[in-house]
């Protein structure tokens, strides 16, 4: 095999740009900060990003369907607050959690109904629910922090299963399930038809409206779970939870190779995306660099990773053909 051919084969690997960047950062960190690869730090690294990670699973489905969901940034604190209120009113842990998740699901249902009925772009529908929910959260809490969680509730954010923190364990289980389902299950596969060519989906007899309801409700429930975990972690809940989290979640999904125009992507890419942001996040914790540098580095890394991905992608496509515009535009 000539060098050139070898290069071609290597570039066939998906997400190579991202993978390279991640590996380089890990190596760099491991050399200068040996603590970086210690079990404790890896746990910190995971826990620092587990909410985003859980939500990114649902968001992957949403974006493959050519949709988007901004409202999760409202659902997450909403569910945290609600679970707190229910617990304070002695509903019991199971009932409180179920009720909070039910309310979260309701938000997803409203989103889906707006998208299906009004035929308005999901960005706008979910932006509207986000703004509304933020308001609702403020109205409910009057801007104050909800406290008074019973100790038994601490498990969801702080407990351990097989020695692994519960949130990470939960994420791992869900990630495996999602990967497998999305790849192989008939029901989940519909998402590629809906995102890839909605007419094709319709003509094939896919019930699009019902599927849209399914994924938006699912996504909201995941955000609700993330909210409950956060509440349990901090033993409190307030409206400040989840500010900007929607952008972080969307970012990890997109740098993982899911295209905003829909029809393309998988959970594996998303997991890499999560890893990428979690590592950058953790780098700052480790290096003790001033936090305001964090954003600059984070932004630059983002640009570098996608740039590499594109550059390698262009090599993969071979010469001559520029990437079609519609493949990456919104």
């Amino acid at each position: 095999m000539s060098l050139n051919e070898k290069f071609r084969t290597i570039t066939k690997v998906k997400n190579l740009g991202l993978l390279t960047t991640i590996v380089l950062i890990i190596i760099g960190m491991a050399i200068f900060f040996p603590r970086f690869l210690s079990p404790i730090n890896i746990e910190i690294l995971g826990m620092g990003f587990v909410q985003e990670a859980i939500m990114a699973l649902g968001m992957t489905l949403i974006i493959i369907s050519a949709g988007i969901d901004l409202s999760i940034a409202g659902v997450m604190p909403f569910s945290a607050i609600m679970v707190g209120i229910f617990l304070n009113n002695n509903f019991g842990i199971t009932v409180s959690i179920l009720l909070a998740l039910l309310l979260s699901a309701l938000v997803g249902f409203v989103n889906a109904q707006m998208i299906n009925r009004l035929k308005v772009h999901p960005f706008i529908c979910t932006l509207a629910t986000l703004t509304t929910l933020r308001g609702v959260n403020l109205v409910i809490t009057k801007g104050e922090t909800v406290t008074g969680f019973p100790p038994a509730f601490y498990f969801f954010g702080q407990g351990r299963v097989f020695g692994i923190p519960f949130p990470i364990f939960l994420f791992a289980v869900m990630a495996i399930a999602f990967t497998y389902l999305l790849k192989n299950h008939k029901y989940f596969q519909q998402v590629y038809f809906i995102g890839g060519n909605i007419n094709s989906a319709r003509y094939s007899g896919i019930n699009i409206d019902r599927f849209i309801i399914f994924i938006y409700v699912l996504n909201s429930i995941l955000a609700g779970i993330a909210g409950i975990i956060t509440a349990s972690q901090y033993i409190s809940a307030n409206t400040g939870f989840g500010i900007g989290i929607e952008l972080r979640v969307i970012t990890v999904v997109i740098i993982g190779g899911v295209s905003l125009s829909g029809g393309k992507g998988n959970i594996g890419g998303t997991i890499l995306g999560i890893l990428f942001l979690a590592i950058i996040n953790n780098t700052f914790v480790q290096t003790g660099a001033p936090t305001y540098w964090q954003e600059v580095v984070y932004g630059s890394m983002l640009l570098i990773a996608v740039f590499l991905e594109e550059y390698i992608g262009a090599k993969r496509e071979g010469t001559g053909v520029l990437k079609r515009w519609r493949e990456f535009m919104l």
Binding site: Y192, G196, S200, S204
Partner: peptide, 14 residues
Amino acid sequence: LVPKLKVAQNIFSH
């Protein structure tokens, strides 16, 4: 058809 999916997937879509 869905351009980003394989021929087999398209033939038996759903």
